[in-house]
């Protein structure tokens, strides 16, 4: 059973690499990539803490709603762990 995750719906200022179009969207863990320097610190030349990076797979229906071309096509993106939360409900497919 794939692990479900949701990208946090937050809009902090500064350099972040969680794309706005995926914020608040739920997907599942496609693979875990290991820990990488936090780009939100690296971008400013600050010492960066290593944060787990996860490939998350979303359905096009989840990202764009029902008027998408093909709802079952998918979109994968790398999201840092501090941007992920773990939804308790299991209502989505």
């Amino acid at each position: 059973m794939a692990e479900r995750v949701r990208v946090k719906h937050m809009m902090p200022p500064g350099h972040v690499r969680a794309p706005a179009y995926l914020r608040g969207k739920t997907g599942f863990v496609e693979r875990k990539l290991g820990a990488f320097g936090n780009p939100e610190q690296l971008a400013y030349g600050l010492p960066a803490e290593k944060i787990p990076l996860v490939r998350v797979r979303f359905s096009m229906a989840e990202v764009w709603g029902s008027d998408t071309e093909y709802p079952n096509d998918t979109l994968d993106a790398e999201i840092f762990a501090h941007w992920l939360e773990y939804p308790e409900t299991h209502d989505a497919p």
């Binding site: 690499r17 969680a18 794309p19 990539l33 990488f36 780009p39 990076l53 797979r57 096509d73 998918t74 979109l75 994968d76 993106a77 790398e78 999201i79 840092f80």
Partner: peptide, 8 residues
């Protein structure tokens, strides 16, 4: 399957 290179 679209792959967005968002990080490393």
């Amino acid at each position: 399957r679209v792959h967005d290179s968002t990080a490393d």
